[in-house]
């Protein structure tokens, strides 16, 4: 089950960003979408989140068996971590994380105490509970990143989507967070799809890697498999493999 992407095509005006892409993310798997810029990887992630719609009449998106192809983003419960985090500047950290709970329909909305408990559990999980009263502009890049993750997790997402999660961080923080995220995944086994252009990151973090180019999946497999048996010259060249 997990996330099933079936025959997705996406065109912007006349430019074809994705060509009939099919991809299955296994439940509990951490899958990396790796590719150069313009390969369509972010577009694919946004289609899964409901932030873009695929060309009508083409393909399907399923979350754990449920067809969500035409569901709006706000009905999908897909936790999305944006490249630049998109934290709500006018809200403090606590309110940022609580947002997804506060906007639920009244019947499903937790009480104020439950929200408080839930938010602090999440903030502890990302080791930032002492920052609850701060505002996003007062945080470092790495801290913002973790808050963005906590905020996405607050809605108990069916699938976690990360768009270049470490793209805006410097090398040292990037390494630390990478390790931390892997560990986090081991504990939760949340179905996760993440986009990156950094192969080292993809190979170190992911259970499986899908390599995209020009709107097509060139190869998909576990890191070892790809490095040992690149299926075509693009993958070979992109990975910079020798001979």
């Amino acid at each position: 089950m997990g996330v099933q992407i079936r025959n997705i095509t996406k065109t912007f005006n006349k430019f074809v960003a994705l060509k009939n892409v099919t991809l299955d993310v296994q439940p509990g798997e951490l899958l990396a979408l790796l590719g150069p810029s313009g390969s369509g990887k972010t577009t694919l992630l946004r289609i899964v989140a409901g932030l873009e719609f695929a060309d009508p009449g083409h393909g399907q998106i399923l979350f754990h068996g449920e067809d969500v192809t035409y569901h709006s983003a706000y009905k999908r419960r897909a936790g999305f971590v944006f490249q630049h985090y998109a934290l709500f500047q006018h809200m403090n950290i606590f309110e940022n994380v609580a947002f997804g709970l506060r906007v639920r329909p009244r019947k499903l909305r937790p009480t104020e105490d439950e929200i408080r408990d839930r938010v602090f559990t999440l903030l502890k999980r990302v080791q930032l509970e002492q920052l609850a009263k701060r505002f996003p502009s007062q945080l470092s890049g790495g801290q913002r990143q973790r808050i963005a993750l906590a905020r996405a997790l607050a809605i108990e997402p069916r699938v976690l989507l990360l768009d270049e999660p470490f793209g805006a961080l410097d090398a040292k923080v990037r390494k630390e967070l990478r390790r931390w995220l892997r560990q986090f995944h081991e504990e939760t086994h949340l179905t996760t799809l993440f986009v990156t252009h950094d192969q080292e990151e993809a190979f170190e973090l992911a259970d499986r890697v899908a390599i995209l180019s020009e709107g097509n999946i060139q190869q998909i497999g576990c890191p070892k498999e790809i490095v040992q048996h690149p299926t075509n010259t693009f993958v070979h060249d992109f990975l910079g493999l020798d001979i």
Binding site: G50, L51, E52, F53, D55, P56, G57, Y70, S72, A73, Y74
Partner: peptide, 12 residues
């Protein structure tokens, strides 16, 4: 042709 029927991402 189909564009008219594509749902919009932002509501409203």
């Amino acid at each position: 042709m189909f564009n008219r029927f594509t749902p919009r991402i932002m509501p409203g």
